[in-house]
């Protein structure tokens, strides 16, 4: 294909990258919305190049940072930065550290069910 002059090396790499990165999305239903978002980005990239992509991404981020679902912001542990809840996002913390529930959920049961990893106070170890 390349030697015949149909596509360039760069074009092949871009197509391969898009094909691979389409596997990133966790949910099938997201694929259509990603496709819809893709076309304006393509037009912007055609007109303004990389700067256009950045402006498009910025507009999408402005929109996403306003979304909330059930009062919880869309970028929840990052956008209102909450260090205590970051332990479940990028790197998974060990199970015994994840005792308490996220702040945005129920106010009554702040601690999850005890997992018996640690001894309770005054409990006999044997």
């Amino acid at each position: 294909m390349v030697e015949a002059g149909f596509v360039s090396y760069g074009g092949l790499i871009v197509v391969a990258l898009t094909a691979v990165s389409s596997f990133v999305q966790p949910n099938i239903e997201m694929s259509s919305s990603i496709r819809v978002l893709g076309f304006p980005l393509m037009i912007l990239a055609g007109i303004f190049g990389f700067l256009g992509i950045m402006v498009g991404v910025l507009l999408i981020l402005i929109h996403l940072s306003r979304l909330t679902s059930f009062g919880v912001p869309y970028f929840s542990p990052f956008a209102p930065l909450n260090v205590h809840e970051l332990k479940d996002t990028i790197i998974r913390a060990p199970v015994w550290m994840k005792g308490d529930r996220p702040k945005s959920s129920s106010r009554i049961h702040k601690v999850k069910m005890e997992r018996e990893w640690k001894l309770n106070d005054g409990e006999d170890p044997y």
Binding site: F48, V55, L58, L59, L61, I62, S65, R66, P73, F75, F78, A79, P80, L81
Partner: peptide
């Protein structure tokens, strides 16, 4: 004009959404 689009779209909103946007960016 490109900047104007970003300005108008970004500024309409609550201060809370601005804070979320800034902390994400």
């Amino acid at each position: 004009f490109l900047g104007m689009v970003v300005l108008i779209y970004g500024c309409i909103g609550s201060i809370r959404s601005m804070v979320y946007l800034f902390s994400f960016l």
